[in-house]
Nucleic acid binder design. Structure first.
Length: 260
DNA sequence: ATGGCGTACACCGTACGA
């Protein structure tokens, strides 16, 4: 089983890329972020033709998340419980395989935060606190939990092309990293780091200043797995190829593979 | 160099992203 995450930066623009990549990678479950589509415009039929069912929570222009899967989604939750938030940034669902094993997946589009000290930064930290409480609750009910998404936090300096330049900046500041660490401390593991310890592997590059060509990137898109799934995680990776395609998203897909 | 590029909505510019 493969579970993946991709910030597509407009599903309307990126549907051809998503279709191409789904055919190549053939993931079982995919969380996508920044769909930027109201629900009545979600391309449900086009994805069904590719073999994927969808659940989604979107809005015009900004944000928007969805889960695509070969199996049907159960117990779908949209939004962060207890958080009164018009921004569509969270969706969760359960998937039960042929043997009756259930896996819970939470897909997040974490707040960017704009700049340390900005009011959006405060919203980011408050949002992460609510998400942490939600994940704790989900973990207590679903030991097989995977939390995926655009976290908008580089976990440590290995995940930053120029740690000195980014030190203390948005996406790298200590309060953000502390918030991510608190979530991991609930009993989750960064699947990429279960298989690769070296730095220099990124999932996002700025459109500006030839960021991709110069590999000026960050690793901010993550697949987190619970203790119960850690031993089953056979591989994890980042698909750089879609970033080379014409008119790409600024993020690439990330994925983790699980054995039975 | 508070730029640069891309998307959306709408207006011929502004908001936002990371």
């Amino acid at each position: 089983m493969q579970i993946a995450s991709w910030n597509v930066n407009s599903l309307n623009v990126r549907l051809p890329h998503l279709s191409e990549w789904l055919g190549q990678r053939q993931p079982d479950i995919v969380g996508i972020q920044e769909t930027k589509l109201e629900d009545d415009r979600f391309p449900e039929d086009a994805l069904l033709e590719l073999g994927y069912r969808s659940v989604f929570s979107g809005q015009k222009t900004y944000n928007g998340v969805a889960l695509l899967s070969r199996l049907s989604a159960q117990d779908v939750q949209t939004g962060v419980p207890g958080l009164d938030d018009p921004q569509r940034r969270a969706i969760a669902a359960s998937y039960v395989d042929a043997s009756g094993t259930s896996t819970r997946v939470i897909n997040l589009y974490v707040v960017n935060g704009k700049a340390v000290g900005d009011e959006k930064y405060d919203y980011k930290l408050r949002w992460l606190e609510a998400v942490q409480a939600w994940i704790a609750d989900e973990l207590s009910r679903h030991p097989r939990l995977v939390v995926i998404g655009d976290f908008n936090i580089a976990p440590d300096d290995r995940d930053v092309h120029d740690p000195a330049a980014w030190a203390g900046e948005i996406l790298c500041s200590e309060p953000e990293r502390d918030a991510l660490r608190s979530i991991l401390d609930l009993g989750l593991h960064d699947s990429f780091r279960l298989h690769c310890a070296e730095g220099g592997h990124f999932s996002w590059w700025d459109y500006r200043a030839a960021g991709f060509r110069r590999n000026l990137g960050l690793r901010i898109d993550l697949v987190l797995v619970s203790d119960a799934l850690r031993g089953a995680c056979r591989a994890a990776g980042i698909d750089r190829e879609p970033r080379t395609w014409e008119r790409p998203s600024d993020h690439t897909p990330v994925w983790a593979e699980f054995g039975s």
